[in-house]
Structure formats: structure tokens, C-alpha cells
């Protein structure tokens, strides 16, 4: 069993003069939650459509589960697109059954699994309702069920939380984490950086059709450490050796930059001699900071 569920090699997609993907490379570790990040128009949706074989790449290869991606693999992939909806006039039960069967599930198995999920979400009484009778939040739950119903190895969520209310966000997030525990790999694209930090193991940042950042989230955060420390002390006139540079001071909250050859302990020692330390913390960049910095630097 290969370690990566999906490897994308040199994916290129061009629409007329517009280059949507420019030799994109990705490796998605099995059983992880993979955040696909990037500003609008970066090419995330195009990439997800290529993985779902909705469109074909102009160049490049995709390796799924150790073998080149083929048509039959779509039954092993679940996709919740950003632009998602349901037939409004169709009944919920009939519709979910139809969509599950389109994924290749036999009738009885589809029915059984659907009842399981409907019970889990406590929505069994919607079975004979038309979709147009449901609220937006209700429809989103159904869309989620339809996406995961065939128990695929790889789940792809494009902006899964957009338009969800906080309660539903929590429900869906917990379900995603549970699916991960069950061994499913999840790719998800989002603008919501706090949810990236919360649930992603790995990320890739795409901008202008190129991967500009890829790897484990901890490692990326480490790489983006700025060696700035927030220090609260009781002295107003602090002076430090030259390897510690004071960036700012507001009400005795100091931002101190340590030069590359110095360590945080050295800073602590230097401070202990001069004042009383109230708090001492490394300023770790958030994913949002990293996102903005990476896109700007590019």
C-alpha cells in the first residue's frame, strides 16, 4: 500500500490564454486531512475538478492509491463542490438514493447506508419531503450525507463550511474528524484559516496556478517562525544587548526580535537580570499570517 493516497505530478490546465494550473505537484498522505489553500482564482477548484475527472488535465499524471487514476476510481472519491445543490422538486429520500446509485452503490446497500446516516443526523422524517421544503442548513446536511455515503477512500470538500451556521459547522467538522479516524483521507479547500489550523495535518498553498507552499502544518509554521517574542515586564526603560532588538513597546508589552545566533533562553537570562518578567511568549505566526505572507512574497 502506497503511503500517499494521491500524487499529482506536473498538472497543467489551460483555458484559452488563461493558465489555470502551471505544473502543480502535490502529495496527499493517506489518512490525513489535507488543506488546499489559496486566494480566489488560484486554481483550487480546477485542481479538484481534475482529481474528480470532471475535466482532464492538458498535461501531467495523477496517481491514486498507487496506480494511475482511472474512471472506475470515482466510486472511491467523494466530492462536495463549492457550487452545490439538489433537485428542488425531488423528494429527499428518492434523490439521495439516486445520487448514491450514481456513485455505483447497489440499491439495497444505498438504502441501508442512507437510513443509517439519516438516523445519525436525526433527519429520517425528511425522507418524503421535497428539497424545496427544507431550509438551507437542512439541505447542506443532505449534501454532506450524499458526499460520504459510498464510503470513499478520498473525500474532497470545496469550502465545506461556507454558508453553514456555527452549529452545523461543528457537526460537520466532528464528522470529518471521525471519518479521518476511520482511515479516510480528506482534502479540503477553504478560506477559513482558523479551521485549517484546527483540523488539517498538511497543507498546500496554491497561487496563480502554482504550488508555493506544501507540507505538514507544524513544519510550515516552524519555517515561518519570525523569532519575535512578546514580553511583559515591569520596567519602562529596557535596554538589551545588540542581538536582541526591541521592535515595539506599548505599556510595557515588548516585541523583541532575537538574532539568528541567539536563543530564547539567552533573552530570558538577559531579562531576568534587569526586571521582573510577567509573561514571556514566542510570537507564532497564524496560518493567516503565513497565507498572506506567502502570497505577497510570491
Amino acid at each position: 500500500m502506497s503511503e500517499s493516497i494521491l500524487i499529482a505530478k506536473d498538472i497543467v490546465k489551460q483555458y484559452g490564454d488563461y493558465l489555470a494550473l502551471d505544473y502543480v505537484n502535490l502529495e496527499i498522505p493517506r489518512g490525513s486531512i489535507f488543506g488546499l489553500l489559496g486566494p480566489n482564482g488560484a486554481g483550487k477548484t480546477t485542481l479538484m475538478r481534475i482529481i474528480n475527472q470532471i475535466i482532464a488535465p492538458d498535461y501531467g499524471t495523477l496517481i491514486f492509491d498507487g496506480k494511475p487514476l482511472k474512471r472506475a476510481d470515482i466510486s472511491q472519491i467523494g466530492y462536495l463542490p463549492e457550487e452545490r445543490g439538489l433537485y428542488k422538486k425531488m423528494k429527499v429520500g428518492e434523490q439521495t438514493l439516486y445520487l448514491a446509485k450514481l456513485k455505483g452503490m447497489p440499491h439495497n446497500e444505498a438504502l441501508e447506508k442512507l437510513k443509517f446516516w439519516f438516523k445519525k443526523f436525526d433527519i429520517l422524517h425528511w425522507w418524503n419531503k421535497k428539497v424545496e421544503e427544507l431550509s438551507k442548513g437542512m439541505a447542506q446536511k443532505i449534501q454532506f450525507v450524499v458526499t460520504v455515503i459510498h464510503e470513499p477512500k478520498l473525500l474532497i470538500f470545496d469550502e465545506p463550511f461556507s454558508g453553514f451556521d456555527p452549529i452545523n459547522v461543528a457537526i460537520i467538522r466532528d464528522e470529518i474528524l471521525e471519518l479521518k479516524k476511520g482511515g479516510t483521507t480528506i482534502i479540503f479547500s477553504t478560506h477559513r484559516m482558523e479551521s485549517v489550523e484546527e483540523i488539517c495535518d498538511n497543507i498546500a498553498l496554491i497561487n496563480n496556478g502554482k504550488t508555493i507552499l506544501e507540507g505538514a502544518i507544524e513544519k510550515i509554521k516552524n519555517d515561518f517562525r519570525s523569532n519575535i517574542f512578546s514580553v511583559k515586564i515591569n520596567t519602562e526603560n529596557l535596554t538589551l544587548p545588540e542581538q536582541f532588538q526591541i521592535i515595539s513597546n506599548t505599556d510595557n508589552n515588548y516585541q523583541i526580535q532575537i538574532s539568528e545566533n541567539a536563543t530564547s533562553n539567552q533573552l530570558l537570562n538577559a531579562l531576568i537580570e534587569k526586571c521582573e518578567i510577567i509573561s514571556f511568549q514566542e510570537k507564532i505566526p497564524t496560518m493567516e499570517d503565513i497565507f498572506i505572507k506567502a502570497v505577497k512574497d510570491e
Binding site: 474528480n52 470532471i54 470515482i74 472519491i77 466530492y79 462536495l80 463542490p81 457550487e83 452545490r84 445543490g85 439538489l86 433537485y87 428542488k88 445520487l99 450514481l102 456513485k103 455505483g104 449534501q143 450524499v146
Partner: peptide, 18 residues
């Protein structure tokens, strides 16, 4: 048009070819 405006089309073509 109905499939397009109700946004179900992309869900379906992730299962079948357009």
C-alpha cells in the same frame, strides 16, 4: 438550466461524465 441553477450539476458529474 434547472440542473445548472440548482447547482446539482457538479455533484452529478463527479459521478458520471457530462
Amino acid at each position: 438550466i434547472e440542473e445548472k441553477t440548482s447547482r446539482i450539476v457538479e455533484v452529478i458529474i463527479s459521478s458520471v461524465k457530462p
